[in-house]
Design a protein around this nucleic acid. Structure first.
Length: 499
RNA sequence: GACCUGAUAGCUCAGCUGGUAGAGCAUUACACUUUUAAUGUAAGGGUCCUGGGUUCGAAUCCCAGUCAGGUCACCA
């Protein structure tokens, strides 16, 4: 047990005093609530009796009367206690105010109050409490954030490390944090509704995979004891959704938690959420139209009023080669690796002999072009070498039928006409391995032969898309770090001995 | 992985060129029956992130480490 602070010791003493007075600080009975705080504010009726429960956020004791503030999941309300009127179960009336309320109750405790509504002379809706019930004792002090009339915040609980490590405290104390996560949930619900209305089927596919496919990334590795085999946490679910399209589903989607064992920064968490959608008999042009409509629907519902991004449709469609030409002056079509390296040198972009054509082109685009696309823009027709799971472009063998949606200079979605030629697919995956083996010989660069087998049975022409949900939520809530849109972002373990 | 910045009371922070640690809120005690950043008086509360070093003396200077944030690198 680590050392306890003075305040923790005091609260533990109070806990024992409560018990010795016959008050259970953690009662098990249901507590009957008649109203939420939000409802009381909306439908105020003078003298109406109410019963609510929540966390005591503030307590101002002024002699024989006191004011407090109680917060539930819908809001906060002022409560008023007087020595004459306050009662509680299992306690003599004369002790309730002087001992229970004044000495044993703490800010942070979860309490239930019954009483009638009135307005103070400051015109604030308040509950005149007749009966006070302790529902859960808090033995650790919460940060005291104060807000004045002008909504100015004092002593905000603002240490980011503590906020992420103790998100529960962050949520108790910082109201705007909860709003971000409620919005995240509503965005996901709205996307789900949109897809369900189109009769696409929400599915679950394996998180534990023996061959981590569908992307190139370092996976997390684990081990199945009974089977005696290594398993990997999925880096993508793409190959499984395509198997379902082969199996006859016309459209499938999954909000996929993916795991990648790579660096972390404000855009990358080791686990993150992607919406993957695959629709049979469609191509990437159709998918662009679809994406535009879905995004517009979501933006109309959720974007902040003062957003400086213009979400008007249609979104411009620009080929990646044109984008590069526009922002660098170089026409890189048909360039080989050597030429591309020269271009990189001239543009002062890092390059080396080990980088593939695909990597070099990607670097040029990311360094010189991506940041210019603030408003939603489709970047289309990526060179085929960059896209091993994508169909060759119908008009140009060197290109693929792929697009990315860029918003605010960041990739939000990645989509293509899915490659359904099993022979070509096998060839391209082998090429991919050749390229990557130059850099690393990690064992996870295996070909998913079952996926090739599935393709051999025939996959309809299919359009697929992956949308980065975390980044979408960041965009719509105007947060600059992925950690702010994840309840529990990944952190290194805390030091031992920390209180 | 590299560089920059930071870590002091429960929370938010101050602490100068080295001299045994301060404020506000919170806590404790007293007063106060309409407060709302309640007020007044008094009190308590610290592994100054950890470990070394320099020094008569280190929160402060130096070295190493831990954790966090930022920038870059990595990342289809």
């Amino acid at each position: 047990m680590s050392y306890l602070s003075e305040q923790q010791i005091i609260r533990r003493k109070k806990l024992n005093q409560l018990k010795s007075l016959g008050i259970n600080p953690y009662p098990s009975e249901e507590y009957l609530i008649t109203d939420t705080i939000c409802k009381i504010h909306k439908n105020f009726i003078e003298k109406e009796n109410v019963s609510i429960a929540g966390r005591l956020m503030r307590l101002r004791i002024l002699g024989k009367a006191s004011f407090g503030e109680i917060k539930d999941h819908t809001g906060s309300i002022q409560v008023y206690f007087t020595k004459n009127d306050l009662t509680s179960n299992k306690m003599k009336k004369e002790d309730v105010y002087d001992i229970f309320l004044k000495k044993l109750l703490d800010i942070g405790d979860i309490i239930g109050v019954e009483g009638f509504l009135f307005k103070t002379k400051m015109n604030e809706i308040t509950i005149h409490v007749n009966k006070l019930t302790l529902l859960s004792k808090s033995i650790r002090p919460i940060p005291q954030v104060k807000v004045d009339k002008n909504k100015k915040i004092y002593d905000a609980f603002s240490n980011v490390e503590q906020r992420y490590r103790m998100r529960y405290v962050d949520l108790i104390v910082n109201d705007d944090v909860k709003d971000i996560f409620l919005k995240r949930t509503r965005i996901i619900q709205e996307i789900r509704n949109f897809l369900d209305k189109k009769k696409y089927i929400e599915v679950d596919t394996p998180v534990l995979q023996s061959i981590p496919g569908g992307a190139i990334a370092r996976p997390f590795k684990t081990y199945h004891n009974a089977l005696g085999i290594p398993l990997y946490l999925r880096i993508a679910n793409e190959l499984y959704l395509k198997r379902l399209i082969i199996g006859g589903f016309h459209g499938v989607y999954e909000f996929s938690r993916n795991f990648r064992n790579e660096g972390m920064d404000r855009f990358h968490n080791p686990e993150f959420t992607v919406l993957e959608l695959y629709v049979a008999y469609k191509d990437y042009y159709w998918m662009m139209d679809f994406t535009e409509n879905m995004m517009k629907h979501i933006f109309d519902l959720f974007h902040e009023e003062n957003h400086d991004i213009n979400f008007q449709i249609p979104f411009p469609r620009i080929s990646i080669l044109d984008a590069i030409k526009k922002y660098t002056g170089f026409s890189i079509k048909n360039m080989d690796q050597n030429d591309l390296r020269k271009v990189c040198q001239e543009l002062h972009i890092e390059e080396n002999i080990k980088m593939s054509k695909a990597k070099l082109i990607e670097n040029i685009f990311e360094e010189k072009c991506e940041k210019h696309y603030k408003n939603p823009t489709f970047i289309i027709d990526y060179p085929i070498v960059m896209s091993p799971l994508t169909k060759k472009h119908r008009c140009d063998n060197s290109l693929s039928e792929r697009f990315e949606l860029i918003i605010n200079g960041k990739e939000i979605a990645n989509a293509y006409s899915e490659l359904n030629d099993p022979v070509d697919q096998l060839y391209r995956l082998k090429e991919q391995i050749k390229l990557s083996e130059k850099k690393t010989d990690d064992e996870f660069m295996l070909i998913d032969k079952d996926f090739i087998r599935a393709l051999e049975f025939g996959m309809p022409p299919t359009a697929g898309i992956g949308i980065g949900i975390d980044r979408l939520v960041m965009l719509l809530t105007k947060n600059k770090s992925i950690q702010d849109v994840l309840f529990f972002p990944q952190m290194r373990p805390e030091k031992k001995g920390k209180k």
